[in-house]
Design a binder for these strands. Sequence first.
RNA 1: GCCGAUGUAGCUCAGUGGUAGAGCAGCUGUUUCGUAAACAGCAGGUCACCGGUUCGAAUCCGGUCAUCGGCUCCA
Length: 596
Amino acid sequence: MSYEDSRLYRLRHSAAHLMAQAVAELYPGAKLSIGPPIENGFYYDIEFPASIKEEELERIEQKMKELAKLKQPIVRRLAADRDEARRIILEETTNGEGAENAVYKLELLDAIPGGEEVSFYEQRATDKQGQEHVFIDLCRGPHLENTGEIQHFKLMNIAGAYWRGDVRNKMLTRLYGTAFETKEELETYLHNLEEAKKRDHRVLGRELGLFMFSPRVGPGLALWLPKGATLRNVLCDFLQAEQLKRGYQPVVTPNIASIRLYEKSGHILTYRDKMFPFMEDEEKETFVLKPMNCPFHIEIYASSLRSYRELPVRYAEFGTVYRYEQSGELAGMLRVRGFTQDDAHLFVRPDQLLDEFKGVVDLMLTVLKKLGLSEYRVRVGTRDPGETKYVGHDENWELSESAIKQACEQLGLEYELSPGDAAFYGPKLDLIIKDALGREWQMGTVQVDYNLPERFELEYIGEDSKPHRPIMIHRAPFGSLERMIGLLTEQYAGAFPLWMAPVQVAVLPIADRHNDAAEALAARLRGQGLRVEVDDRRETLGKKIRENQRQKLPYMLVLGDRDIEAGTVGVRSRTEDLGAMAVDEFVVKVTAELAG
RNA sequence: GCCGAUGUAGCUCAGUGGUAGAGCAGCUGUUUCGUAAACAGCAGGUCACCGGUUCGAAUCCGGUCAUCGGCUCCA
């Protein structure tokens, strides 16, 4: 049974109504808008007469408990027609506060399609003091039978939310809460939230020495520490090797360019507010910090006459781009202002589009598998049939939309179609992954583009010795290194698989007299291509194990008199003591693990 | 950018009007140790920043900045 059909869903929906009832009683003049159940709870968007503070949640929660205990029956009411619905909203749902108080509900009513029935949910009861409590809300439902069933809930936080999700509208106050069937489930949920915070990449990034931010450098500008930079290099090496196999060619381009490049590409028109402020040189030439790599790669393509025989051309670059994200959107490594895309641009003939797209999807699948990511969503963004903002000919769009679908189907990649999510210049495929707190982030992306080849008048000479326009594919399997490594940190809770781990092996000499042997062992393992550190601090073995364990190192090798004499090491994995092993045996074991 | 919250030592946190505290980390000394924290001592702070109220501000008020949870937007 789907979540939407479950009792839990109805419970949360009814909890949202209960919260709205409590707010209506506590804050006369509060204007209610919408209050749906969501993945882990519910919310209600409300315009309060005066801004409210987080501490007031407790008061609202208290009121909810009182109202729940009244065991108000929840009754569905059908409005006979629009006029009656309007009357109910104006006269019954606003506690006599009139039309001004019902603005959002009236707008919602107008949005309900003509043929559809209009229903209300009503809950009412009289308390011991003889006071009557009534709450009626325009709502599709369904709900529980009685407010008495709402017992295990908690209000979580306050946030602002634009009415109907549109920045041009008024910002309402959103109250978030959660509710469960049992006390245990509620407690488990809250406990898991706490646990998830320990996997937060911002916490682990510092603890494990991966990356950091500094106020002196600036918001959203990451600093990669040695271990993080090592991890980053490992991932880049992997992808680069994979791309080499697939006929990609490396290119390298600058971080700034004349504004003329971005005028030509059209980004100045569509992207200006996401770009860092421009800079001007002494000769009044304006330069911009690059927000995208594509125009540079296009210049390289356009630098010589291309034959149809050369295509597809695939230019790849780990290109660092800068985007002036709004301050409130920054989120650790998951949302930064300077990031490196594992970018590439493919210039293809129409007859190559399907195969090339398949090649890219295959690469993405290879990457996902290697990274151990299995929890992801694939979204194919196609045109919204009602929209006219798109560039390019219809037959091209049909060609590329079907190429994307075919590529996925032939490679067994499950996807969901999302009409309207295409870029204005072409359809795309996005990879979406959740972080520790369950928030979704767009990672890898493949986009078909007819716009830029047009704007830059790109050509190749066809078999017919006439010029033809190539199609571009933009693609980034990781998306960005910052976001990907942030996410991987959370996925693995810092315990990266052996091949990724910045330090794979720590050698732990027991006493000072074992330091030389430890260095020799480390050198030997490094000779095998392993990333090895020696922990020769003057600390007890127990302490070294504890701390290296906390650093989530895959292997620790304990080295003492017994081992030096026998040519062994005491091997310890992340979880357990594996006992003494010959050094060669350990090398074989680790090598096998890396190969497998 | 907008709504709400937070900002005290490298880290985690205590301190609600009377001159700043703990644990861990650091440094020094002792200990040379076989599988998750040896012992002792020392040092460390413009209480984010700027302004105001007050005899007196980490504490109250205002502003700025940064961070966190959302909204919008996105790799």
